[in-house]
Simulated scan of single mutants.
Amino acid sequence: MVSLIRQFAPNWFTTVMGIGIVAGLTYTSPFPIPYQHQIGMILFGMLNVVFLLAFLFWIVRWILHTDEAINDFRHPERALFYGALAMGMNVVGNDYLLIGTHLIHSSIAIEISKVIWVSGTLVSIFTVIVVPYLLFVEHSVEQHQTLATWLIPVVPPIVAAATGTNLIPYWGDINTQFAITAIIIAMFGMTFFLFMMVSALVYARLVYHQRLSGIAAPSLWVEIGPIGMSMGTLSTLPLKTQAIFAPYTNILHGIGLIFSMAMWGVGVWWIIISAMHSIFHMSHRGDGLPFHLGWWSYVFPIGSFTSGTYALGHLVHDSFFTFAGLIQLAILWGCFVIVFVRTASGVWKGTLLQWKISQPKPQVDTQNQKTA
């Protein structure tokens, strides 16, 4: 168990992100699906178990292996995944609002959602400041090492913004709702600005350096995550802030509509480019796609884009985006099943987490072999 905890790095919270987004999108699908609520509830239960285990392992690792935990921040790749912790918390909190309110007393579920959202927001602010700062002053990287995974620590504020938008009406008086809305818009601006800069670096790396390896190819899908969350934030704000910005509701509606449709087009482009990279490496010309935890990049970013499509559909009330959301949900489920099964298999076999006690190999009597 001690060895297991030592290995438990923050990148394991990507599983929390993936399970949580699939649960919420399945439960709230605007296109009726057989047993969607039952499936969503089952995944919600699984999400709570996985999140609690992951959070417990992470805390115990800080207690028992403090040096190992601190070393995560000294490593330019491992430090990135503290963003996964923040986003995982925000997804769990959002699912308590979407699904938990139908399983336990709604007021309790909403309070749990708010507490987790505040906690996730604080961790999000921590990651978006600390991890880039370490990259600027401590870590040593080359241009060819630029990957879309650099978005992982800067994306959490926009995930907190998108999930927090749903909670705006539950914050009591108008003044509190306005303060929360101001924080949400500020977090949106913070992440969107950083998303544009990091995306430019990723594009430049794709142009000026050799192609991504099969191991790195799944990372391209991370680009789709902030696109979907930005759509979700600006498409939902006009619907949740009518009591605060009544005179500007139509303006916000127009901004959300135009912005989200434009970003939907950007998201489709990134999906096609990312898919082409994955397909290339599955061909005889590529390196193959060896499985690792980075494959969860096929799940949460697609889920984020699907949630943005849902939000855009609710804003415009058009069947096109309802149907598009259904197609995206089907693709998401296909990716989720593959990645979840491969992850469970990797854990069980001990290839992702080395927890099995290796059996000593039987000694061979070489002297007798030579005599024979």
Score class of each variant (00 low, 15 high):
4 L>H: 08
5 I>H: 03
7 Q>C: 02
12 W>A: 06
15 T>R: 03
18 G>E: 07
19 I>R: 04
19 I>P: 07
20 G>W: 06
21 I>W: 09
25 L>C: 00
26 T>Y: 00
35 Y>S: 11
37 H>W: 04
42 I>L: 15
46 M>W: 02
53 L>P: 00
55 F>Y: 12
57 F>R: 03
70 I>P: 00
74 R>A: 09
76 P>E: 10
76 P>N: 06
80 L>R: 12
81 F>W: 11
83 G>E: 11
84 A>R: 09
84 A>D: 02
87 M>V: 13
98 L>I: 14
99 I>L: 10
100 G>K: 01
101 T>F: 07
101 T>G: 09
105 H>Q: 15
108 I>F: 14
109 A>M: 05
110 I>N: 07
122 L>W: 06
124 S>D: 13
126 F>G: 12
127 T>D: 10
132 P>E: 05
132 P>Q: 10
133 Y>F: 15
139 H>S: 08
142 E>S: 14
143 Q>F: 14
147 L>M: 09
148 A>W: 02
149 T>E: 10
152 I>M: 12
154 V>F: 04
156 P>L: 08
156 P>A: 11
158 I>R: 00
159 V>E: 02
164 G>C: 08
165 T>F: 04
167 L>C: 09
167 L>A: 07
173 D>P: 01
186 A>N: 10
189 G>R: 07
193 F>R: 04
196 M>P: 00
199 S>G: 10
204 A>K: 15
205 R>M: 05
207 V>I: 15
209 H>A: 05
211 R>I: 08
212 L>Q: 11
212 L>P: 00
214 G>R: 06
221 W>T: 11
231 M>R: 00
235 S>K: 01
239 L>C: 07
239 L>V: 02
242 Q>C: 03
248 Y>P: 02
249 T>L: 03
249 T>P: 02
250 N>R: 09
251 I>T: 12
255 I>K: 01
258 I>C: 01
259 F>M: 12
266 V>A: 13
266 V>F: 14
269 W>G: 07
274 S>D: 05
277 H>G: 10
278 S>E: 07
279 I>E: 03
279 I>V: 15
283 S>D: 08
289 L>C: 09
294 G>L: 12
298 Y>L: 13
298 Y>F: 15
304 S>A: 15
307 S>D: 05
312 L>G: 01
313 G>H: 01
314 H>S: 08
319 S>K: 09
319 S>W: 11
322 T>V: 13
323 F>E: 14
334 G>M: 15
343 T>N: 00
347 V>Y: 08
349 K>S: 14
362 P>R: 13
367 Q>G: 09
368 N>G: 01
368 N>V: 13
